[in-house]
């Protein structure tokens, strides 16, 4: 007893040994949580694949919603024009202003139109336009379909014997697929115009001379892969926007989440497709 009186306070100061049982429970809970996240990931991949298959099937089915397709083309194309115009012009202008001193240093100032046009047509035009469209069109589609889901409009469409994928998704995906390449060409044109303006800041350059030189180095092998990849950009943006909207949860918060996730995922797809396209072009 006397012995305990002395040793007791000392024992109290020694930190307790961890409870093995509690540690085990904590470990297993963490493991379950991680497994749930993995499950969630695979469920998302499964839903994405299924949605892709249903959209693919609906694209080639009868009763194509042509009016809705035209309406979506107008929304995707026409409504994005002002933003694309400014962006294209600014890209060309900035590229020219920044490249001029470097080219001048190497005595290659005459190569300025060729270099800027090549970089606009091959990379900057398609990728920047696609990223802007991912923000504007992808988020718009995600939010619109998400709010339709929340307010039961998609369910209403389904019970009135209309396939919502055929009416809502297919026209949007196709509109994005066909309009984004046109927007890219439009942005390229404004980019070259911006480059000419940039070249005119320090000196007087004739527009015809500038464009003649710009296109002289531009071959079919530069233009063709750049245009082809924009179709894939468009399809990815449209598809991701629709997928996120369609799979939005219940409640208004889900609409914001769907719009946000659409932008993130569509941008990621654009960059990945660009990487793959660069590899394929390099191999050819």
């Amino acid at each position: 007893m006397k012995h305990m009186k002395v040793i007791g306070p000392v024992l109290k100061r020694i930190p307790r040994l961890p409870n093995v049982k509690q540690q085990a429970i904590k470990l297993s809970e963490n493991a379950i949580r991680k497994t749930e996240k993995v499950n969630q990931f695979f469920l998302e991949v499964g839903a994405f694949t299924l949605f892709f298959w249903l959209t693919f099937k609906a694209t080639f089915s009868r009763d194509f919603e042509f009016r809705e397709f035209l309406r979506q083309c107008y929304l995707v194309g026409n409504k994005t024009l002002p933003l694309i115009t400014i962006t294209g012009l600014v890209i060309g202008l900035v590229l020219t202003i920044q490249s001029r001193p470097i080219l001048a240093e190497f005595g290659a100032l005459s190569m300025l139109p060729n270099m800027v046009t090549l970089s606009i047509v091959k990379e900057m035009g398609p990728v920047v336009t696609a990223l802007i469209c991912a923000g504007k069109i992808g988020s718009g589609m995600g939010a619109e379909l998400g709010s339709m889901k929340v307010t039961e409009q998609i369910d209403a469409m389904e019970v009135s014997s209309t396939n919502p994928i055929r009416f809502l998704v297919v026209p949007r995906v196709l509109a994005a697929t066909f309009m984004i390449p046109i927007l890219v060409l439009y942005a390229d044109a404004f980019g070259i115009m911006g480059s000419w303006l940039g070249a005119n800041i320090k000196g007087d350059v004739n527009f015809v001379l500038f464009t003649t030189q710009a296109f002289s180095s531009l071959g079919f092998s530069d233009l063709f892969p750049a245009i082809i990849k924009t179709f894939f950009f468009g399809a990815a943006i449209g598809f991701v926007g629709c997928f996120k909207g369609f799979t939005a949860g219940r409640g208004t918060r889900s609409v914001g989440i769907a719009a946000n996730e659409s932008v993130v995922m569509a941008s990621m797809f654009v960059i990945l497709i660009d990487l793959v396209a660069a590899q394929i072009t390099d191999m050819l």
Binding site: T151, Q153, A156, V159, S161
Partner: peptide, 28 residues
């Protein structure tokens, strides 16, 4: 075909908000 025989009034109304009332009725 079966759904054509059933009318469903949703709690929220679920009118298509990008269409006029006439277009909403013409849709089904």
């Amino acid at each position: 075909a079966m759904r054509m025989k059933i009318g469903f009034l949703f709690q929220s109304g679920a009118l298509y908000d990008s269409m006029t009332i006439k277009e909403n009725l013409a849709f089904p």
